[in-house]
């Protein structure tokens, strides 16, 4: 198996927290992994992305070639569109529906949605709303991970184990809250697939 993923969002939204769980699940599954991150200046509210590659054979490049990503996971809808040149023909886009507007020339949100609607394979969801229903807005990124989970090429049980590992230090209550968030995200994806 081989899954090439682009994670995107705005600096400060925490795309790396999603990558951390996937990475943990991949490594404990004895898969190869490479993950290019963005540090430095862009983290101050600029566009950020991370290339995450998982495979059962060794991976050469840290960067995903154009048109080869199996999945784009985006915490922000306009940022999802920025990386479309990397999406493969059969690839999926999983994105948060709520814009993060910190620039004066942000396009009309309906225009952004219209572009997303054109894609044949996408999951669009309001992760913060779902996270609040689950019990805490802070689990929004895990809801996003849950919605992406059918496309990762990793067993769901392994992703649950990754969540348990990453949040383990924070106690059982936080772990079970995040597992609920993961499940809620996955359910949305399953109804929209």
């Amino acid at each position: 198996m081989k899954t090439d993923i682009i994670l995107s969002g705005v600096g400060g939204q925490g795309i790396l927290s999603i990558a951390a769980v996937i990475g943990e699940a991949a490594v404990s599954n004895n898969l190869y992994m490479k993950q290019a991150e963005v540090h430095g200046m862009s983290q101050r509210g600029g566009d950020v992305q991370s290339n995450l590659r998982i495979s059962d054979s060794p991976i050469a490049s840290d960067l995903i070639p154009l048109g080869k990503a199996d999945l784009i996971i985006s915490l922000e809808p306009m940022e999802a569109l920025r990386y479309l040149p990397y999406l493969s023909k059969q690839g999926w886009l999983v994105t948060n529906s709520v814009p993060f507007i910190n620039i004066s020339n942000y396009p009309a949100p309906e225009q952004v949605m219209a572009e997303i609607d054109k894609l044949p394979r996408k999951i669009v969801l309001d992760v913060e709303k779902i996270a609040k229903e689950v019990g805490s807005a802070r689990t929004a990124n895990i809801v996003m991970l849950g919605a992406s989970s059918p496309f990762l090429g990793i067993d769901y049980a392994q992703i649950e184990a990754g969540v348990r590992y990453i949040f383990g230090k924070k106690g059982d209550a936080i772990v079970s809250l995040n597992l609920k968030a993961l499940e809620a995200g996955r359910k949305v994806a399953e109804t929209l697939m």
């Binding site: 705005v10 154009l66 048109g67 479309l84």
Partner: peptide, 20 residues
């Protein structure tokens, strides 16, 4: 030759970093 299946739509704007 690198090949994109989807183009970046024109609505996408630059998002430079900013002071917090």
């Amino acid at each position: 030759a690198p090949k994109s299946e989807y183009a970046m739509p024109d609505v996408v704007q630059m998002r430079p970093p900013a002071l917090c």
